[in-house]
Nucleic acid binder design. Structure first.
Lengths: 196, 196
DNA sequence: CCTTAACTTCACAAATTTCTGAAGTAAGCG
DNA sequence: CGCTTACTTCAGAAATTTGTGAAGTTAAGG
């Protein structure tokens, strides 16, 4: 976003109009400096963000989406703007844009537009996080399709066909089970944290 | 994780000493129903292998391991040698080696040495397939560690800390549930297929 | 309207990953 | 014993992925 042009650097951010984390109930106690980053030890935040992101990367998530997601998780409001993300993570607006596109696609973040502003906020809901994990179901569905096809073309009575059948049965089983598990989780969560 | 049912499968590969190095000729092509699938349509097998592998790749598995794994799944014996894999997939021994190393590391295949031969067979057990999926637990454990650290350094009473806590609780919950689910699966499987 | 802020898309440079041929190692077999 | 087979490791070429600057698009605000 920096024009890398003339010397004047006073980002309009200094103004920070009616920004306010009027998000949740307004009584954000951390209340210190700018929008999000500094009631807390920014270094501690960064350490967590990079560490957790590294784990996600290792599990297969691309680097930028992982860092953006971790930053959102670690934010107090659970929602940050593109500019805030870019600053905290030291990445270009283009990188933020790409990362957010990825995360939205896998349902890990949702986009909100603040009315009366051009800003968009990218939000992580705990629920989405869980759902997204669950949404590996979509992937499994395709695995199942491929397996069914394999059983059909290799013959259900051949040894290979039987192996594929069993694998297929496993996925079908898991699919049902996971759904039940998520239902139990919601109950469990409410017991732990109260209906949120 | 109780299992070790043992007594898995009788080794169906008795003789099978036929080598068939169709490699050296220019005639590496269909018709290669050598050691493994005499009687099956090699084209149908290949179609399944490539299709299923593509799904795995899309889910994040590297290409060669995915293809090798799919080929093993689709084999009648559930075990193939390096040469057989190389021929069917048209890849170099080095590629087979790398793929197998990867698969063994994530516990998707095991290596067996045929006594009295230098050959090694790479085998897929249905059980391993399930276990491997389950073994994402190892990954989750590390996520949990990172989250605990985050809760500690951001403060369990901050909004961000609470979000991380909830996520952590979710993973801990899932971990327990998955184990129970796998136990149920084994029972279910035995009902479907009979204790194998 | 015209300006400007916020985000997106595009093209390309850089880093990383993937797969191969070739050389290396180990073990059965003549 | 030493030849041969079966697999592994290594170095590097090729392909793919990643992140950036810059131009493009949309919409608020004067």
């Amino acid at each position: 976003m920096a024009e890398s042009k003339s010397g004047d650097e006073p980002e309009p951010e200094a103004e920070l109009e009616a920004e306010l984390e009027a998000e949740t109930g307004g009584d954000v106690q951390a209340g210190a400096e700018s929008a999000e980053g500094a009631g807390r030890d920014p270094e501690a935040v960064s350490r967590f963000v990079e560490h957790f992101a590294a784990q996600l990367v290792e599990a297969g998530m691309p680097r930028m989406p992982a860092r953006v997601f971790a930053a959102l998780l670690a934010s107090d409001t659970g929602a940050l703007t593109s500019a805030e993300l870019g600053e905290q993570l030291q990445i270009s607006p283009a990188a933020v844009s790409g990362a957010v596109r990825y995360l939205a696609q896998v349902h890990l973040v949702s986009r909100e537009r603040e009315p009366g502003s051009r800003r968009e906020r990218y939000r992580v809901h705990s629920d989405q996080w869980y759902e997204a994990l669950t949404n590996r179901e979509a992937i499994m569905k395709r695995w199942e399709d491929a397996l069914r096809e394999g059983v059909a073309s290799l013959g259900a009575d051949s040894p290979a066909g039987r192996r594929l059948s069993e694998t297929l049965a496993f996925f079908e089983f898991v699919e049902v089970e996971v759904e039940a598990m998520m239902a139990r989780w919601r109950i469990h969560r409410d017991q732990l944290f109260g209906a949120d």
